[in-house]
Design a binder for these strands. Sequence first.
DNA 1: CGCCACCTTGAGTTTACTCAAGTTTTGTGG
DNA 2: CCACAAAACTTGAGTAAACTCAAGGTGGCG
Lengths: 240, 240
Amino acid sequence: MEHAQAAYQRSEDVCINDLAKLRSVGRETWEAGLGQSRRHRINAHEVLFYEGDTAERLYEVVSGVIMLYKLLPDGRRQVVYIVREGDMLGFSRHSEYDCTAEALTDTELVVIEAREAEASAQMQSHINKCLLLQMENLHEHTVLLGRKSALERVSTFLMSLVPNRGGNGCEGPAEEGRPDTRTVVLSMTRQEIADYLGLTIETVSRVVSQLKKRGLIKVEKQDSIHIANICGICQLTGIH
Amino acid sequence: MEHAQAAYQRSEDVCINDLAKLRSVGRETWEAGLGQSRRHRINAHEVLFYEGDTAERLYEVVSGVIMLYKLLPDGRRQVVYIVREGDMLGFSRHSEYDCTAEALTDTELVVIEAREAEASAQMQSHINKCLLLQMENLHEHTVLLGRKSALERVSTFLMSLVPNRGGNGCEGPAEEGRPDTRTVVLSMTRQEIADYLGLTIETVSRVVSQLKKRGLIKVEKQDSIHIANICGICQLTGIH
DNA sequence: CGCCACCTTGAGTTTACTCAAGTTTTGTGG
DNA sequence: CCACAAAACTTGAGTAAACTCAAGGTGGCG
């Protein structure tokens, strides 16, 4: 199942270690504390909730990937966040969700009633950690949308799918001579990637083709890209 | 003092009422709970902390305006958030700040030691509220950066300086025949606005000139714009 | 095997950018 | 209070990056 792998990958500069940390003070702890913790499964492309829906529940992603997006009245869409394993969604300051949540892959969730979350200190602390993580990711994505070129955006996106690389704590290639290589699963269509990166589908496609021509990547399936030279892609992200 | 007014203005769709709410469950409550709550003043253009500094303190803005920004190695800058009265800054997931914080105006802050914040449940709840507010603002700004035209960006920015207008809960003009008018203080240079909106200084200047020519605004001082037709500007934000 | 959704590529256009003057505003010292 | 300098802003001309529109290609699934 390809999504099992995708679920371990984090956007931006968050690595597997961070997620492990999140989990360790997370579900196992607070799940026991709550009266009942329901599980919920949804299929790829199903909507979990719509912008404007009454916000009664929080969710933690156990496996799979969810995107949060907002629409403008004329149909323009912006994907504002990608929620991966260990991360949460459904936060709301008012009584309503501010984004629509749609599954990119088949997804398993833990459902948390907002009332219960408020009552549990452990839960509050866990929510806090997720909010801080999301804030940092959003800040980084703001830089991407405000200041990066199409090539830099797509390269940054690809690097975000490589654990332990591309962020500020980038480790560089493991060893001299070791192949600096990895296959990443996008779990998004070109249109969804475009709406995430603030580009058009054609521009995303052209940049991917360009990276292919340069020999930096191979497109194995539409959904699956082999990065032949991770450092090479990293050099294109604008952060070096 | 022009900044006293600016301090009451909120970015995005947050109105004075929201801020009043934040404050009411905020400073007065937790300030009493903490051992000592220090105040700190900084002047316009002073840096409160740099990206990468050890994150030992949180701050709440009592008066004034602070911008958070990130730099790319080649000097490109993106302002990722504008912190106004009642809002907080200095959150960090790791031990380091992820953005630089620089004062746009003379600013008064409450200083909160990170350790103390962790110990106080009231403080945690207050932080949570601020994080949720900031998340919503960031989501909205993500749409602006990813999907809006220059005209829409500048119009959205101007509307964000008009309390109770321009957001989802926009009230529309108060009464038929009442002048739909307001003077807003930018408290940012054209360059800072450009770096916030993901544009160049020239583009910001051209859009402002265009709005002036159309009779929708008057530029009273560089820093102060009279909006002659609030609804007219609101129509240009892309949210209608 | 053929259809449908998704993706790619090309040609032409548009928006915002860059570069280069000029102009206005602001702040300072005489 | 005025003159001057520095900073900030505006405007124009030309360019480039990404967009739109339009075919055509590819691959996954019944």
